[in-house]
């Protein structure tokens, strides 16, 4: 199974707030064959749960890894990256 990962640095001064979190969850949920996760501060949650994403308690400057497994992983990761960047949430961090 393919696993793909991309790290981001949170740039939004509010961390991750409800609107972009909603967009992330909606995007992750579109890719039925893929499982998406977010990992930050030692905690890993499914990206299909808004409460999970908010529970990471992300603040400006934190590093978050988005991990996608399964069918269409590459596409899903690209779509999630677009949300992260377009919503002004974070920047790609290598």
């Amino acid at each position: 199974m393919i696993t793909m990962q991309q790290n981001f640095k949170i740039t939004d001064e509010d961390g991750i707030h409800a609107r972009p979190a909603t967009a992330l969850v909606n995007t992750a949920s579109k890719f039925i064959g893929a499982e998406s996760f977010a990992e930050a501060n030692g905690k890993k949650v499914t990206l299909k749960s808004i409460l999970g994403v908010l529970s990471l308690g992300l603040a400006q400057g934190d590093i978050i890894s988005i991990i996608v497994e399964g069918e269409g992983a590459a596409e899903a990761l690209q779509a999630l990256t677009d949300v992260m960047v377009n919503e002004g949430l974070g920047e790609v961090h290598d």
Binding site: A18, R19, A21, T22, V25, N26, V45, T46, K48, S49, I50, L51, G52
Partner: peptide
């Protein structure tokens, strides 16, 4: 209207 989209998502949230 965005806030209500978030509320809807919470009611669909498997974690809840």
């Amino acid at each position: 209207a965005e806030i209500f989209a978030s509320h809807l998502l919470i009611l669909n949230d498997p974690e809840l």
